[in-house]
């Protein structure tokens, strides 16, 4: 009895894996009619299931593949203009840049935030960081550099002014979009340059 139980277990295992019964099992099946009947019934069930599986399938609509492929094309064409993975990164970078520039602008507009004028006369003040820096770094031919700069209408200064006005516009736009109307009070945070 225990022998039969073990052999049936092996028989099920072989059937599950789709293998031929091992020799031991084959010998037992030849001797034991109950196990042989069990094994043959299982085989018949599996054979029947495999045979009738195709007949049991519903007829799939003929345009199903076409429908899927056109849906794929549509979804691709929607996604193509901007790569989705980069979008959050770009937003984050733009936001951070705006915040950084706004902070810099705010600090630059504070009274007394400008560095003290550098006095050339006398010994350098050890507590003034700019003078301390000048000890190690001297501008070669400073007068020439200043005259060229004046001839080119101060490109650095005008560029900085452009950056500042861009930042003001960006911050105003952000405030328009995200700040509640009660705080904004229908006016720009940074009025444009006169």
């Amino acid at each position: 009895m225990l022998n039969c139980w073990l052999h049936r277990r092996n028989a099920r295992r072989a059937l599950d894996l789709g293998l031929n019964p091992p020799l031991k099992l084959q010998r037992h099946l030849a001797q034991c009619p109950a196990c042989r009947s069990f094994y043959q019934t299982e085989l018949r069930v599996i054979h029947h299931l495999r045979q009738s599986a195709a007949a049991d399938r519903a007829s799939a609509p003929p345009f199903l593949e076409t429908r899927i492929l056109s849906a794929l094309s549509r979804s691709e064409s929607i996604r193509e203009p901007a790569p989705v993975g980069l979008r959050p990164l770009a937003f984050t970078a733009t936001g951070l840049a705006c915040v950084l520039l706004a902070v810099l602008l705010f600090l630059s507009q504070q009274p007394g935030s400008h560095p003290p004028a550098i006095t050339r006369s006398g010994s350098p003040d050890p507590h003034n960081p700019i003078q301390a820096l000048e000890q190690h770094w001297t501008v070669v031919n400073r007068e020439l550099w200043l005259s060229v700069n004046a001839q080119w209408e101060n490109p650095l200064a005008s560029e900085l002014q452009l950056v500042v006005s861009d930042v003001k516009t960006a911050v105003n736009a952000l405030a328009d979009n995200f700040l509640p109307a009660s705080i904004r009070q229908n006016r720009d945070l940074f009025p444009p340059n006169p």
Binding site: A58, A60, L64, E65, I68, L69, E76
Partner: peptide, 17 residues
């Protein structure tokens, strides 16, 4: 993209059933 189209052709019926 053609590779995925072939996969659709191979599997659409089976997935539908």
């Amino acid at each position: 993209r053609d590779a995925f189209e072939l996969l659709v052709r191979q599997y659409a019926d089976r997935i539908f059933h």
